[in-house]
Simulated assay, not measured.
Amino acid sequence: MAFNSSLPPEFDRGVVTTVHQGDCHVSSAPDVTFSTVLGSCISACVRDRVAQIGGMNHFLLAEQSGSAKDRYGASARYGAFAMEQLINKVLSQGTGKKANLEIKIFGGGKINSALDDVGAKNIEFVRQFLADEGYVAASQDLGGTYARRVLFKPHSGRAFVKRLDSDVGANVAKEELAIAKRRVVVPAPLDDIELF
């Protein structure tokens, strides 16, 4: 994983698919790159090393519940759905073996004080989710006070992170603040998702 400003050659060609908040994309094509810009949001990149298929999601826990037993309320159900959806898609299109998965996590920056450090809550959530499911992140770039662009090659599993300047970060913060104010959380489906 690199943090410099020039792209490695493999990220500079092929098909780039933007992953927006709420999205989950999976591919095994060697020429595909997934791209997203994160502020306090989290993006997980999950890859089946044997099948050479991988995917990326992008989610935000928009609100915190006051309940001790459901600390993040509906937001956590959405975060769990976003993680389970990505893992299940990679498993079902790959070997189906959890042991073959490699997981990288990104985001959770504190880029706007009005968001009450949603980024830290997102980081805590994704770490707890992975621990509860028995996964360990192969690599991560979390926290900080900046937005970041993440590029991920699902076929090879390579990830590239570029920290963005404060102007871009301010725009990302504005978008996330609008989402948090509307408390827009895409509801998880009523059916439980079973991890296999």
Rank of each mutant, 00 (worst) to 15 (best):
I53S: 03
L86N: 01
T36S: 06
L60V: 05
Q52P: 06
A74H: 09
A44E: 05
G79N: 04
A80E: 06
I42V: 10
R49N: 15
I53Y: 01
S75C: 11
V32C: 11
S75R: 04
G73A: 08
S67Y: 13
G73S: 08
D48K: 08
Q64G: 00
I87P: 00
R71M: 06
S43H: 02
L60C: 10
N57D: 09
M56A: 08
L91P: 05
G54D: 05
L91I: 12
H58I: 11
D48V: 11
C41W: 02
R77A: 10
R77Q: 12
S92F: 14
S40T: 10
D31C: 13
I87T: 11
G94C: 10
Q85E: 14
A62D: 00
M83L: 13
V46K: 05
G94E: 08
V37Q: 00
C45W: 09
V90Y: 03
A62I: 07
I42W: 01
S67G: 12
K69H: 12
I87N: 01
V50L: 14
D31N: 13
G73T: 08
F81T: 05
T33Y: 07
V50M: 14
L86A: 04
Q93M: 14
S92G: 12
V50Q: 13
R49S: 11
A74G: 09
A76Q: 06
G79Y: 03
L86F: 06
M83T: 05
Q64N: 00
D70Y: 14
S40Q: 10
R71A: 04
S35Y: 12
S40G: 15
S92I: 08
V32I: 11
S67I: 12
A62S: 13
V32Q: 10
L86Y: 01
A51M: 06
S92Q: 14
K89E: 15
R71K: 11
C45E: 09
K69I: 15
D48P: 04
R77E: 13
C41R: 03
Q93Y: 13
G55Q: 07
E84M: 15
G55S: 09
N57E: 04
N88Y: 03
C45R: 02
Y78D: 04
F59S: 02
Q93L: 15
T33I: 05
A76G: 11
H58C: 07
A82Q: 02
S40Y: 05
I87G: 01
A74W: 14
G79Q: 02
M83K: 03
K89L: 13
Q52R: 14
S75Y: 07
Y72Q: 11
C41T: 05
